[in-house]
Design a protein around this nucleic acid. Structure first.
Lengths: 195, 195
DNA sequence: CGTTTTCAGTTAACACTGTTAAGTTAACAG
DNA sequence: CTGTTAACTTAACAGTGTTAACTGAAAACG
């Protein structure tokens, strides 16, 4: 295996095992049995390495979402399944999820814009389903792409509160998630106004 | 003015002017015309200082929300106003908002739990309005406190995507926000099913 | 008054961080 | 056998949060 991939692999291990705070160049290097400076032969800098990790995480999430889609179910149900899948991914792989939103763009002056928008291909799964629902008058949206993005954002918020441990201790996590999904999905379905 | 307050003040200045990345103990100290170690006479450590800053930010946000409530308007409208106000606060004071969710609990072993749940008193504003709406059969919730929390979380998600610059460049920010608020609020109002 | 204790701040240092310039070492090309 | 290239290391720089030991002045006590 190339050293580049070795570095990516041990970085992921380290991230999951010991968290973002311990993910230093020297710790990564030690685990890969090289020196820290060797990493710079394969990555521009730490942000570049993190972006590669983010890439992998998004890919991972995308796979999970893709596997969840069951076209035989009705569209609203498909949307709810995806929402649940998204949240479950974040809970199952908290560190991998967090890193996606952890690297702060304002603090790395010249990052590749398209990298962050690579997540686009993932939320386009949502956009497709929303668009189908719109055509069948099941889902109430003007622009499926924008609505897919707001859905994505809403789910991120739900996950973010849990992962950052901001959830009120009086509120059971499961109940919070169920309620959140119910509200989120309801925000998209057509209001059946009296004829 | 006490040195403690002086430190808090220049910290806030520094955060706003130069961002979280430049908010180091030595930078703070320099601006307060003391040495870095003096800060430790007034705060346990950096996290403790950050928590004090977070406290102030939450208080600031709470004030804004409180000022936004207009009881003469209908409840749905009040909820929407609060949602818009929340998002606007985050856009007007991005650094102050970000710090609220930036300090990562898993990386500070023994933080005071009640600190993070101090935000509770802020979202209880939402809970109140939701509860009133429930009593008037305008809003569809089982538990106002939990639903208020899910609303809060969703708004945080919307803001988070914008502040982290994850918003697709093809999507105008204003349109994104308007759509998000529409979906979020619709997720709470009673479905007027045919009689 | 003089002495002692207390308090608020400083200096120096430790162990870490990302990152760069220069040096090494081995494989390959001519 | 020599020259070049590539992969890696060593040493160092400037920065980080944090601690222990020190300084000086003010307050407390006899």
């Amino acid at each position: 295996m190339s050293l580049r991939n070795e570095i990516l692999e041990v970085s992921r291990e380290l991230l999951i095992e010991r968290g973002f705070g311990k993910l230093s160049m020297r710790n990564i290097a030690k685990r890969a049995n090289v020196t820290a400076t060797s990493i710079y032969l394969h990555f521009d800098n730490k942000d570049d390495l993190l972006l590669a990790l983010i890439d992998q995480s998004i890919e991972h999430l995308k796979e999970k979402l893709l596997a969840e889609i069951d076209s035989s179910k009705d569209l609203i149900r498909q949307l709810e399944d995806l929402a649940r899948c998204y949240i479950q991914f974040a809970l199952d792989h908290p560190k991998e999820y967090e890193i996606i939103y952890m690297v702060r763009p304002e603090e790395m002056p010249e990052y590749p814009k398209e990298k962050f928008q690579q997540i686009r291909s993932a939320y386009e799964l949502l956009a497709e389903i929303i668009d189908k629902g719109r055509q069948k008058d099941l889902i109430d949206v003007e622009n499926p792409v924008i609505s897919a993005y707001t859905l994505w954002a809403q789910l991120h918020g739900v996950v973010s509160v849990i992962l950052n441990k901001r959830l009120d201790t009086r509120i059971p996590q499961k109940e919070f998630i169920d309620q959140a999904i119910e509200h989120v999905i309801q925000g998209f379905i057509i209001q059946k106004t009296p004829a």
